[in-house]
Design a protein around this nucleic acid. Sequence first.
DNA 1: TATGAATGAGCTTTCATTCAT
DNA 2: TATGAATGAAAGCTCATTCAT
Lengths: 192, 192, 192, 192
Amino acid sequence: MKEEIIKTSIQLFEQQGFIETSIRDIVQTLGVTKGTFYYYFNSKEQVLMTIHSSYIDNVLEQQKAILKNKNLSHVEKLHQLIDMLITNISPRGQSARVFFREFRHLSESHLNEVRPKRDEIRNAIEKVIIDGMQAGVFRSNLQPDIITLGILGACNWTYQWFNPEGKTSDKEVASIYVDMILNGISTEQNKE
Amino acid sequence: MKEEIIKTSIQLFEQQGFIETSIRDIVQTLGVTKGTFYYYFNSKEQVLMTIHSSYIDNVLEQQKAILKNKNLSHVEKLHQLIDMLITNISPRGQSARVFFREFRHLSESHLNEVRPKRDEIRNAIEKVIIDGMQAGVFRSNLQPDIITLGILGACNWTYQWFNPEGKTSDKEVASIYVDMILNGISTEQNKE
Amino acid sequence: MKEEIIKTSIQLFEQQGFIETSIRDIVQTLGVTKGTFYYYFNSKEQVLMTIHSSYIDNVLEQQKAILKNKNLSHVEKLHQLIDMLITNISPRGQSARVFFREFRHLSESHLNEVRPKRDEIRNAIEKVIIDGMQAGVFRSNLQPDIITLGILGACNWTYQWFNPEGKTSDKEVASIYVDMILNGISTEQNKE
Amino acid sequence: MKEEIIKTSIQLFEQQGFIETSIRDIVQTLGVTKGTFYYYFNSKEQVLMTIHSSYIDNVLEQQKAILKNKNLSHVEKLHQLIDMLITNISPRGQSARVFFREFRHLSESHLNEVRPKRDEIRNAIEKVIIDGMQAGVFRSNLQPDIITLGILGACNWTYQWFNPEGKTSDKEVASIYVDMILNGISTEQNKE
DNA sequence: TATGAATGAGCTTTCATTCAT
DNA sequence: TATGAATGAAAGCTCATTCAT
């Protein structure tokens, strides 16, 4: 039942938004009563937090696996991180959209729980870039924090437009982004 | 008065969100009554649409000016477009955040009015890239639509984190992004 | 309308209790909608506070008039204070019962507003007793605080049983209490 | 278990009130489930009735012992009755407060069971006064019913303010009240 | 003896909107 | 141009109670 409530909530939150989805909507979809909802959750926000946690914890887990893999070069690590961020959006698109859109509706205390996790994701990318700069595989004149935010922007934005049924797969999108980020799009290097 | 309602609404929508801001909040802040609000606007959504239109029309205007400037190279056009998207977020940050966050709360008919304008922005960038590819200044193996979305992602995402008081200015962020997009971050080209 | 809401609320709070009376009860009795209620009051508790304030402020006002009357002896002052407490319960019985019964449902901040006023009533009686002791009209071996609480107990308790249609009027009850308090009920003095 | 439920309920009813205390509060405090509660009691009101009965039956028992003691004078009987009413409030303060405050939440049928017992207490005091008047130890011009209610008021009101840790003990309070009731507070007798 | 899942009615409160003035 | 009174629908949440196990 708890699982079903979450599943239904993800669907409705994604379609209508968190605020616009009422408890009534959720329980009516499930064919149960409000009481049942509140037997399993203390509040609507708690369901949102559950969805949030589940999404980000899953991302962090995958990230950890990538980072501790000693066989990967800096470039490969960056590639895999980007790949992971984007391919997560594809199969878990609904959760992803809820995650990115409804962030602001978490309670203050839950926000404080989630924010460090978000930072962790950003910091991991930043660290790979800094390490790569020191190793000489990335240009030494980069500003790693802003570069990181640019990469994250490109990746996270995909939740806004990516269509699993479209002609370009998530893997391909990731490859295109990695290519652009590593090599740029110019025919001549260091043009500007 | 109409102006004041819009100004106050932008502030409140940005701080609390569109749904979370009540008409009462708006009129109380202004020291007028609900009746006054409904004298100038038919609905809360209409205020949102006004804010939206104003923001996107302004962007489109700037874009048009850039595109019709015959003195600019493809690279320069791309640079100026990116620059424009990002620097718009800085001085009009509140409007920008309302624009990006509250999009979904427009009515269906208003959405149909705004969507083509959003497409126009995307298409302009895509066209510059295609033109540049044909002119040989951009690599010929790019997939312009996905590249465009990547660029837009990086730019639009700035509204989420950009801080006008931070150590990196909007102009600098734009430069860093242009540099990354054009030249990549790798020391060796075409590495992967 | 505000007056009508208060009047109806007093009646319903008295009959059914504050908690047991729903907003629905109040507005249905008045033939208006819930919205109307909340147009005039921010909360149910605010209505209770209004009733409370009105009752106690009225009592305090009467008390002040008695205390500043220089023509009255200590005994007469005590008599009038007791008389006032009891006769207030008779015509404003519903308010009185709400006042005594529903005290605990005031919000913390409102409680802090009302408590000093309650203290003021008690302190006035205590002061009359102390003054009378010093003047020699009351026995010198009394413990004024406890005596005061006893007197207040006898008076306030009347709200529990007094019936305006009963055979003993409020004035008579007050006289009987004053007589008992001043002279006791024993035939021989200082018996125990 | 049944005992524990009652004990916990007394505490919670006293602290938060009967209505404001939910079954959930009770069972959570005890670390059991709602089912357990309903195994022992049919309703929340039944717990209240149990608390009520226990309190009043205990008072009635003590009262009976006092009344049938042939060695006591009328004055002594009155003294002991007052003493009993007040000293009961001290050790069983929580029960006492629940008893006096939550009376109104008993069901109609339970009220009909409790009311005669309350009358019994009142009638006992009234009878002592009438007997004392006939015996000439109490003044012959008293109105026994009103006097009784005044005495009961003073006694019962103690539940509102009595503090077992305060400087005046319950026994002392009782003595002060008996003294006041028997002898009054005036230095000259039959003053008014 | 005790549990845990589920109910359904009810609660206070909020809010966008309307409209006569 | 602006007000203030009123509406009515809906929201999130609570709770006493039931019942199969």
